[in-house]
Structures are given as structure tokens and as C-alpha cells.
Write a protein that binds this DNA or RNA. Structure first.
Lengths: 369, 369
DNA sequence: ACCGGGATTGAAACCGATTCCAATTGGACG
DNA sequence: CGTCCAATTGGAATCGGTTTCAATCCCGGT
């Protein structure tokens, strides 16, 4: 049985053809099996118009106390929850932001995601989470999906410049995080990769290490490139010879390369690891080979990690202010959204060199870069 | 020149009063500054009706090849992106799921979140991420926020039973993850906490340890309780005496308690840590005090962690199949969404006891529980 | 030229909010 | 008690899609 009602029920037949007026949207008494009560249901229950309920929900300007109370009561009774999708259709704001990271399982990005969610929540916007896996095509899919959901703004760890047109068309505020957008002046927040790596290598040199192996991970990534650059410049400025073979630019061969350089002739006497997991891996290998750290070989890692201070010896690292970077990025985004000040330029946050002992330092301490 | 057409053009004036027809929604020539082109823009560009464009987008049933091509072209030219909010308003599906975890910075949950996002993406649904911090009030806020966004389904790590009514009213599929919903038969996926802990303690006992300190973390959490229960039962079934003072139920006093029990009289000879971070902390303290592991004191942790196999000695742990649990939860949810089979009951996944050496085992190996 | 019927198509209702506008109400005041 | 102005209020258009319905098109068959 259909509860659909057309004008035919109320209009003389002759009118039908030329003048088909709007049908009443909700027919009283007919209970639609809607999962959630809608605003109109609240309105009817309180015996007021839709506009009035809307006004009550949005701060209650121009609504009498009595009406307000009645509406509030109806809202309570029905357990009314406004539909953000409908609201944003008219209002142009979804109160939702997007976050695209390579992988949330990565401790760096998971901590960042946590901090970003916290800021977003304080502003009443949940976070739509997407992972790009550092794949341009995946990134594109994810951004498209977020655009179709009309996010108010996006925090992105760009892995590719190819999606520029997508982003330009979208025209919502964008903040890049950890990496800049290739060749574009989008707002960006990141740690001082160059400075951190440079200070790290200078430290190694200063401690007397001469042949430093640089384990760079994925050489195509911006962070990796910057850190390698800092490393190279430190070597050059110290007047030391530069050896191309002492840079390992990919994950796959990293372990083998390290082993080779630790055992063959022309042995290295220090390892500079450009990322978390690489450092841990290098530590494992050094242990496995029974090489003394720091006396035979020095070890220095980029990114701090749980237990870095507990290993034997404790590992000296460059520590990025992850939460600070993430929070800053989120704040920039909400400044743009709420105060309209569109963020531009790059914010580079200082990093710390945390002395712990894997390069032969005495006491735990640190220096700000 | 307007080709705006109201019914007035075709209707005798007298009809107007009683029968006020709808005005055409878009007047050509007036370019609205809309951030994104809408379906109607595509329709006009292609010279077809809105319905036709909609049909093209949704699979192209009942559309001629020629029209189809024309519409596709218009979509390309305008860079049209459908508005999911508008779509879901009518269609009742937001193609978005919610995920509420205590904290994404926690490695356990970040890995889980990554796995869940991966499954969700495969189904074309991004994930709305929310953190509860294990606070009931926060959990409530977050769930409310997700409901207002009309998520299709929710994966929840419940920290409180107080939000039941909210969830019941919402009536979307819900899958609990890592913990059950207190007193409710919602679908749940978790590891075998009881069995894992029991096997762990049995192992310690079997290795000859007699006085085992159980560091339980937050004793109010389900996982903690289950594991403590497994631990107790193992002790009881071994016919060993049970000492209440050997259970530490909160984080704050954990370190002090451990130190006390390691140094005072009636010393313990093993530590069973119920969570990741607690294990790492215990390891630090054991090291700091110069206590030999496993000869003086045995150490066993719940949850595997990076470097557990590299510490000296490598740490024996109970390993949960995190990705498996998370993936299963996500799959249950999408089964519900796509195949309509509403999930019920609890799925308990097996855990592994990974023998590494911190309890005096010989070789690395493992046993499935 | 006429007819039946399936393939296409456009128009308009509808989803659930916001917002503008016009109408009504209420209170102060003369 | 009538006026006037401001505070309230209801109604309708609108956002951007989906979906139903009826109209039209196109065909072969007669």
C-alpha cells in the first residue's frame, strides 16, 4: 500500500495539465520509516515551523523563550540529531577535514594523526582519514574521494605533484605536512630536515668518525633528499672526501649494503640512518655482527623512537617535534577556515639533536638545531 | 534574453493565486559562483535533463550510447565531481564509516586503523576517525558527531557502556573491536586475552618462576581484566599461592611498585606485563637496576613490539594478530553493509606466544594459543 | 499512414537542512 | 482602544543529487 499522495487528490482534474503545484512534503499521520527523526518532525511535535526549529538549533536568535523551551523539549523527546549532510548542502560547510598520509601504521604519522585529530575535534570537525601508501595513483583516488565529500580543508603529505589540478579546482585550504607540494607554494609545515641532518653529520665528524655510511631509505622522497643534502654539505664543509658509494638510496639493498660496508675492506666507522625503521634495522645488524658501538662504529638516527634511550648503547638521534609539526599544520588549516587568513609559505620547525651515547658522547643531553 | 519559463507563460492568469507553480531553479546566463559544477551544469552543457546525467553517472542503464558520450564529455570538460552529501540525502548511504579508538598514537591502534582504512578503501568508503582517549564523555561526543554525519557503520573500541542508547537509536551496523560493549551482544572481534595471558603465565611457571609480578596497567579496562584473570587461573591451576600484592592495577604506581618488588624482601622472580608500553618500561627498570634477565628475573610481555627481538635478551611476548583482528572487524562491517548479514557474536582470534629468551628459552620459536 | 511497444528522455517530487521574506503578534504609548 | 515598531514566526525557495512517472521517439509490421 502506497502512502504517496499526489495533487490529484486535492485538485480538480482540469488543472492537472497546466498547473501542477507542489505536493505536500510530509503527510501527517503517515509515519515514514526514517532512521532518524528530521527537523520537520521536531517542528510538528513542538507545533512550530521548520524555520523556528532551525533557529533554535543555531543559537536561538529571534526565538521567544517559551518557543525555545518547547522546541528543546521536542528535540529531547525525539532524540533529534541534525543531519550534517543536509546542512552542508545549503550551508557550504561540512565541518569535516581530510587527512592524507602515506600510512597511519608508521609511528611518525600515527602520532601526527593523533595530534591533528585532537585539534580538529576542538574545532568540532572530525577527520576523514586516507592513506596514500606513497602511490600517486592512490593519492589521486583518495583526494578525489575527499573532494566528493566536500571536505572544508585538507592536510596532505604529498607524494606526487601530479594531482595539482585536482587540488586547484577544489579550492579549499590545503596545508602540506612533512613534505612540500612539488613546485607549488602551498602552505607547508615540516621539520628542518637539512639542518637536522647537517648537524647530525657534523656531530659525527666532530666525534672523529671519518667514513660515514648514509642510509637514505627511499631516495625519491623529499625528506630523504633534504637530509642527504645536509649530510653531504656537512662532509664537504669539513673538507672531507665525498664517496658516492657511501650513500644507500633504497630500502631493498640497505641491509646487504650495510653488512658489506661493515665487513669488507675500506670499512666505514659510522652509520647515519635517515629514518626510524632504518635506524632500528641498522642497530640489529650491528648487534648481530657483534660490532661495538660506539667504539668501533658510531650510529646516529633521524627520528626518535621508543626504546632509543634504552638500547645498549642508547642511540643518539635527531628528534623532530612531531606533535608540534602536526598541531601547527592543523592550526594553520583552522585559521584559514575560521579566520579566513589563507596560509602561505613554509613553516620550518627546529629539531633537536639528542646525545645519548651511540656516538661516544658522555651524558645524555641535547642541542636545538 | 531569458529562456526562463514559469508556468505563467502557459497558464491563464486566474490560476495564479491558488496554484503557485515552482520557479525554474537555474536561470541560464546567471553564473553562480559555485566552487564545484553541479550535475545540472553538466546537464545543461550536454543539453540533456538532470535525470539523464544521473543515469549516466550510475552505470548508464537506459541511456543511448550517443547521449552517454555527450554527457561523459561534459563531465570531463567541467571536471564534475558528484557531491556525496547531496547524493546521500536521497540515497540514504554516505559511503563513509566511522572509527573510534582510544588513541591513534598507540601503536596497536594505529596499525589497526591502517588495516581498517585499507579495507574501507577497497569498498570505496573513507574512514571518519575519532579518538575517545578512553573517556566516556569524549566517546559520547565523538559518536554523536559521527551520527550527525550519518555514517553507514561504526567500528568502535568501547570504553563505556553509557552510550548504548545513542548507538541503539542510530541503528547502523556496529562492530566492536578489541573490547566488547559492556553487557551487549554487539558483534565483537578481539584476541584471546584470557588464553594468551594464561598461556603466558603457565609458561613462566613451567620455566620455574615462582613469584610473578603482574603489571596490569589500567585495571578498569576489559583487556586488562581478562588478562589478569588468565594469569590468576594459571597460578591457581598450578597449585601456587596467590598474592594480591603481586598485582599492580594502575599506571601511576607501576614503576615504583616494580622497583620495590625487585629490591625489597620477598623478591619477585618474574614480571608479566600486560601491555606494550608497560613491558618496555619494565625492561628499562630491570636494566637500570642491573638485574639479569632471565637468570635473576624473567620478563614476559603482552603485545609484540618493534625491537622486542633485538633487546638483550630478546623479549618473549604474547603476540596478537593486530592486522587480522582489525581486518576481520572491517570485513564484518562491510558484510553487514553490502550483504545485509548483520553480524552477531564474538570472534576471538588466536594469539601466539613468541619464545625469545627473556624467560630462559633456548631458541626463538612460537606456539599458537 | 497507422499502430504497438520497448528504448530514451525530461520534468518534478523528494531527501533534510538554512535562510530570506512577508505576515503576525505583542507591548508601549498616546 | 487604535497605532506603530520590533520581536517572532511560518512558508517557500534552495542546495545537489536520485528516482518515479509520464511523455516522446523510433521501429518494424500492416
Amino acid at each position: 500500500m502506497s502512502n504517496r499522495r499526489t495533487i490529484a487528490d486535492r485538485t480538480p482534474a482540469g488543472f492537472m495539465l497546466h498547473c501542477r503545484p507542489k505536493v505536500l512534503r510530509y503527510t501527517e499521520g503517515v509515519k515514514k520509516a526514517r532512521p532518524f527523526p528530521a527537523l520537520i518532525d521536531v517542528a510538528r511535535r513542538a507545533g512550530v515551523g521548520a524555520g523556528t526549529v532551525s533557529r533554535v538549533i543555531n543559537g536561538g536568535q529571534y526565538v521567544s523563550k517559551r518557543t525555545m523551551a518547547r522546541v528543546q523539549e521536542a528535540i529531547e523527546e525525539l532524540g533529534y540529531q541534525p543531519n550534517v549532510a543536509a546542512r552542508s548542502l545549503k550551508g557550504r560547510r561540512t565541518k569535516t577535514i581530510g587527512l592524507v598520509v602515506p600510512s597511519v601504521a608508521d609511528p611518525f604519522f600515527s602520532v601526527a594523526a593523533g595530534a591533528i585529530e585532537a585539534v580538529a575535534r576542538d574545532h568540532g570537525s572530525p577527520v576523514l582519514l586516507a592513506q596514500s601508501e606513497n602511490l600517486p595513483s592512490r593519492e589521486r583516488e583518495q583526494i578525489t574521494s575527499l573532494i566528493q565529500r566536500r571536505i572544508d580543508g585538507l592536510i596532505l603529505v604529498p607524494c606526487d605533484g601530479g594531482n595539482l589540478s585536482l587540488l586547484q579546482q577544489a579550492a579549499f585550504p590545503l596545508v602540506c605536512f612533512d613534505r612540500p607540494f612539488p613546485g607549488q607554494p602551498f602552505a607547508t609545515v615540516l621539520g628542518d630536515n637539512y639542518g637536522g641532518a647537517r648537524a647530525a653529520t657534523e656531530h659525527l665528524i666532530h666525534r672523529g668518525y671519518k667514513r660515514i655510511l648514509c642510509m637514505a631509505g627511499d631516495g625519491k622522497l623529499f625528506t630523504s633528499q633534504q637530509r642527504v643534502r645536509g649530510h653531504r654539505d656537512a662532509i664537504r664543509d669539513a673538507g672531507m672526501p665525498y664517496f658516492a658509494e657511501l650513500e644507500v638510496q633504497d630500502y631493498a639493498s640497505a641491509s646487504d649494503a650495510l653488512r658489506r660496508h661493515l665487513l669488507g675492506k675500506d670499512r666505514i666507522d659510522a652509520v647515519f640512518c635517515i629514518k626510524n625503521l632504518i635506524t632500528m634495522n641498522a642497530y640489529k645488524i650491528l648487534r648481530e655482527l657483534g660490532i661495538e658501538v660506539p667504539s668501533s662504529v658510531g650510529l646516529l638516527g633521524y627520528d626518535d623512537f621508543e626504546l632509543a634511550d634504552t638500547l645498549e648503547p642508547p642511540i643518539t638521534v635527531v628528534r623532530q617535534p612531531v606533535v608540534g609539526i602536526a598541531t601547527r599544520a592543523a592550526q594553520l588549516l583552522f585559521d584559514a577556515l575560521e579566520k579566513g587568513k589563507h596560509p602561505k609559505g613554509t613553516t620550518t620547525l627546529k629539531v633537536d639533536l639528542v646525545y645519548r651515547g651511540s656516538c661516544g658522547e658522555m651524558l645524555p643531553s641535547r642541542r636545538s638545531i
